[in-house]
Amino acid sequence: MSSSRNCSQSKRIEGLEMPTDPATVIMHSLKVTDTEKLRQGLSDYSAAVRARDAAK
C-alpha cells in the first residue's frame, strides 16, 4: 500500500510541475537579469494553474 501511495504522490507532483515547464523553458531562454521578478511571476503562474486545475 505504501509503495502504491508513493507512486501516486509522485505522479501527482509530476502532474503539478508539468504546466510550469514551458514557463521555465522561456525563463531560461530569455537570459533575464532580474531573476527574482521572474521567479515571482513563475510562482504566480504556477499558483494560477493549480487553482484552475483544482476548480475542474
Rank of each mutant, 00 (worst) to 15 (best):
M1S: 14
S2W: 01
S2K: 06
S3L: 13
S3Y: 05
S4C: 10
S4E: 13
R5V: 15
R5Y: 02
R5A: 15
R5H: 04
N6P: 03
C7G: 10
C7R: 13
S8L: 11
S8R: 09
S8I: 09
Q9L: 15
Q9E: 14
S10D: 14
S10H: 06
K11F: 03
K11A: 15
R12N: 13
R12G: 11
I13E: 07
I13G: 03
E14P: 00
E14M: 11
G15C: 07
G15N: 07
L16K: 02
L16C: 08
E17F: 06
E17M: 14
E17N: 06
E17T: 07
E17G: 06
M18L: 12
P19C: 04
P19N: 03
P19T: 02
T20D: 05
P22M: 03
P22W: 01
P22T: 03
P22Y: 02
P22A: 08
A23H: 01
A23P: 00
A23G: 06
A23S: 06
T24A: 11
T24R: 07
V25Y: 05
V25A: 14
I26H: 04
M27E: 03
M27G: 02
M27A: 14
H28M: 09
H28W: 04
S29H: 03
L30P: 00
L30C: 08
L30H: 01
L30D: 06
K31A: 15
K31C: 15
K31N: 13
V32N: 01
V32I: 12
T33H: 04
T33R: 04
T33L: 05
D34I: 01
T35L: 11
T35F: 11
T35W: 09
E36H: 13
E36T: 14
E36V: 15
L38I: 15
L38T: 07
R39W: 11
Q40W: 05
Q40M: 15
Q40Y: 08
G41I: 04
G41R: 01
L42R: 03
L42T: 01
S43K: 13
S43H: 10
D44M: 15
D44W: 02
D44Q: 12
Y45W: 05
Y45S: 10
Y45F: 15
Y45V: 08
Y45N: 07
Y45K: 03
S46H: 07
S46W: 01
A47K: 05
A47L: 09
A48E: 04
A48H: 00
A48W: 00
V49M: 12
V49Q: 08
V49N: 03
R50C: 10
A51M: 05
A51G: 06
A51V: 05
A51Y: 01
A51S: 08
R52S: 13
R52K: 07
R52L: 13
D53P: 00
D53I: 04
A55Q: 08
A55N: 08
K56Y: 04
K56R: 05
K56F: 04
K56P: 00
